[in-house]
């Protein structure tokens, strides 16, 4: 049956094991790609004909903005799966997305501001793209606040899932805001159908940063989700084995 993997991942011990096996690979490839992309983007890539060296902010701004919406979509989809299939693992994944997503939404807004001041001539404008991205930050913060405010786990899962699902409508608004309305923010250069408006010498390190960011997000979400599973699991001999192992691991580190 092709749905076997889906049902297998729904089982906490299986998810815990699989995620644990993937973590080092995801984490280390994110680190290698990220460091390479940073050095390439900061040192080797040529400067821009209009923005000079200032354009290099793009190498952290665009991947952060991508992570902010990609993580939100993951959070909403896993929340929906958790609601529909009553799947605890999916709620754990959804909960693990929020802190990461919130921090990268903040990075996207802050680096955008640091680019906007010299290039546009302003730190902040109530432009549709900027405003909808700010709304995304509030959605993340609202999700985290709601989760910590509700004591009962099952109720917290359901209420937060509903908030995440309602907020997903904002994701296409962020993406298309620069096309639907007059905006100060430019249209995408890379994340679009058709040819990127950027030569390969600048594009390659940028794509590396996109890949590194995505792998990093996966690492963080899986790491937190494993913890979330341990926190929720009540019984099972596997839990004893897992906790014993993780205590032994952290014991060595101390």
């Amino acid at each position: 049956m092709t749905w076997l993997w889906f049902h297998k991942l729904a089982s906490p011990p299986h998810f815990y094991r699989i995620a644990g096996r993937w973590l080092p690979w995801l984490g280390w490839s994110a680190a290698v790609l990220g460091v390479t992309g940073l050095v390439w983007g900061l040192v080797l890539a040529p400067s821009d004909y209009q923005q000079g060296e200032g354009y290099r902010i793009l190498y952290v701004h665009a991947p952060s903005a991508w992570l902010s919406t990609f993580t939100y979509t993951t959070m909403a989809v896993s929340a929906a799966v958790g609601l529909v299939w009553r799947m605890n693992v999916a709620h754990s994944v959804s909960a693990s997305c929020a802190p990461l997503g919130a921090s990268f939404t903040f990075v996207a807004l802050a680096t955008g501001s640091l680019w906007g001041k010299p290039m546009w001539g302003t730190w902040w404008e109530w432009d549709p793209r900027l405003t909808s991205e700010l709304l995304l930050l509030f959605l993340y913060l609202g999700y985290m606040g709601l989760r910590s405010a509700i004591e009962d786990q099952t109720r917290a899962d359901r209420v937060c899932a509903l908030l995440a699902i309602v907020g997903v409508v904002n994701v296409p608004i962020i993406y298309y805001s620069v096309e639907w309305w007059n905006s100060l923010h430019q249209a995408p250069s890379v994340m679009k159908f058709g040819k990127p408006t950027m030569p390969a010498s600048m594009l390659v390190p940028l794509l590396m940063m996109f890949a590194a960011g995505t792998l990093f997000a996966a690492t963080m979400v899986l790491m937190r989700a494993r913890g979330e599973i341990l926190r929720r699991e009540r019984v099972g001999t596997w839990l004893e084995a897992a906790v014993g192992e993780s205590v032994a691991l952290t014991g060595e580190k101390r």
């Binding site: 790491m223 937190r224 839990l239 897992a242």
Partner: peptide
Amino acid sequence: ARRSFRDASEVAR
């Protein structure tokens, strides 16, 4: 993320 995982295993333990 590391601290959150450590805390969670502590709770479970």
